[in-house]
Design a protein around this nucleic acid. Structure first.
Lengths: 115, 115
DNA sequence: TTCTTATACCTCGTGCTTCTATGCATTAAC
DNA sequence: GTTAATGCATAGAAGCACGAGGTATAAGAA
């Protein structure tokens, strides 16, 4: 039996990562932890999704990276948002809002039940 | 006219279709129109996505279909929700709520901004 | 030293969903 | 009988998430 998994819908991962990185430079490993914490465990990002996404975003010019030392004395790649990335974040956030709004209309259209 | 980009996240199409079908038997063509109308044009489902999804859902036992005549006198395949489909709809709706809730937490966590 | 654990990075292959493009059949209008 | 709208369907390609695996460093335990 397949355990119930709440996978992230395709496309939303980029948005969430941009949001976390917008708060300040972080390295990949920390991004995943941050997402999991803030979402109270609902959003979990395995590394097999994380790093390809990071490279994808960097490749599109939305992120820039520098190697720095972490508090634990390790070298890590710290990502930060570029100007283009910030713009993308704003656009995608607006799109997301509009979309869940529309979906809300659809999901609520039936309902006698209100609530 | 700014083109409205629908680009549904993966997995949500099934949910939306289940919801529309839950309201009563409809044929595929009408499902797409209904989704577009109710979402005010935000959600657009091309036929190349629609019919495969329909078959996928039927294949999983969530939908059942009968050929009937439309008001225009044409034969069309009317889909309806099975018991299993209804259950799936409820589950997916709950999952969706939990997810956009979590994403809302993440998107709202920063906000320095203020537009 | 060596082993283990935790941190931190990365890639490949698989599978699923979606989109673009296209074709076929039927009905109504001309 | 040709055109347009309706209605169903498939094929090919592209994109994305994920699991499994690999590398390397630091710190503490044996």
């Amino acid at each position: 039996m397949a355990p119930i998994k709440s996978d992230l819908p395709q496309g939303t991962l980029d948005l969430l990562m941009l949001q976390v990185i917008a708060l300040g430079p972080v390295h990949g490993y920390a991004i995943a932890q941050r997402l999991e914490q803030v979402s109270r465990g609902v959003v979990q990002v395995p590394e097999g999704s994380l790093y390809p996404a990071l490279h994808r975003l960097e490749n599109r010019g939305l992120l820039a990276a520098d190697w720095k030392e972490t508090e634990t004395g390790r070298e890590a790649k710290f990502y930060r948002l570029t100007r283009k990335g910030l713009k993308q974040l704003e656009t995608e956030t607006a799109d997301w809002q509009r979309l869940i709004d529309a979906i809300g209309l659809i999901l609520g259209m039936a309902d006698g039940g209100a609530q």
